[in-house]
Amino acid sequence: MIKILFVCHGNICRSPMAEFVMKKLVRDLRDSNPQASDFEIASAATSTEEIGNPVYPPARRMLARHGIDCSGKTARQMTVADYNHYNYIVLMDQNNLRNLRWILPRDIYEQELAQYRDARESAHIQDARDSQAGKVSLLMDWAGKNRDVADPWYTGDFEATWQDVNEGCTALLQHILKNS
């Protein structure tokens, strides 16, 4: 089973959008190929400030506009158990990477950070990710872009976030299918 955890600061905008976009991509894949791998997909926060809150209304409306229902999703914080459980820990931005230091044991955090930085220095992040043992990545790296997912909390531009999330999730899924 392929297990993916998407992570952002509050788990009310970007990471739930990525969670539900990836779930839709996987559903579509399974519709055309019932033998496709099983997936477990979730999202979480690095902070505690939004725990228990639903997906932010503009993010929920953007998903609904594209036929995706996220009802019932509430924010939760990532745990060490999540790190141990998931194959892929996919972050939305560099701040999320730094904030993992408050969640993961120091030795695991430092190892993941070193492996991530080694991969990031590669000209082709996907090629480097194929050869490393780390679980942590940034979503836009999978699309070959050295930048964060647009944060609609500050910009109000949920369309830009939608585009980034779709591009990153599609590229991540292609990587997984190629390597599974």
Results as ranks from 00 to 15, higher is better:
residue 109 Y to G: 04
residue 121 E to T: 10
residue 76 R to C: 02
residue 123 A to R: 15
residue 177 L to C: 11
residue 157 D to V: 10
residue 18 A to E: 01
residue 173 L to P: 11
residue 152 P to L: 06
residue 106 R to E: 12
residue 96 N to K: 00
residue 51 I to R: 09
residue 113 L to D: 03
residue 59 A to D: 02
residue 169 C to E: 06
residue 34 P to G: 03
residue 98 R to G: 01
residue 87 N to W: 12
residue 177 L to K: 14
residue 55 V to N: 00
residue 49 E to C: 08
residue 111 Q to T: 14
residue 163 Q to Y: 11
residue 164 D to F: 00
residue 29 L to W: 09
residue 132 Q to W: 08
residue 97 L to C: 03
residue 176 I to D: 12
residue 161 T to I: 01
residue 153 W to F: 14
residue 51 I to W: 04
residue 128 A to W: 10
residue 29 L to F: 05
residue 130 D to P: 08
residue 55 V to E: 00
residue 156 G to E: 05
residue 9 H to S: 06
residue 26 V to L: 09
residue 42 A to I: 02
residue 121 E to D: 13
residue 99 N to D: 14
residue 58 P to N: 08
residue 56 Y to I: 01
residue 103 I to Q: 01
residue 89 I to P: 09
residue 85 H to R: 15
residue 67 G to L: 09
residue 140 M to E: 02
residue 103 I to S: 01
residue 175 H to C: 13
residue 111 Q to V: 06
residue 84 N to I: 11
residue 114 A to K: 08
residue 108 I to W: 08
residue 29 L to H: 05
residue 102 W to C: 05
residue 54 P to N: 09
residue 168 G to P: 03
residue 67 G to P: 12
residue 39 F to A: 13
residue 67 G to E: 12
residue 116 Y to S: 04
residue 169 C to M: 07
residue 66 H to T: 08
residue 107 D to R: 13
residue 169 C to H: 07
residue 177 L to E: 14
residue 114 A to F: 03
residue 69 D to H: 10
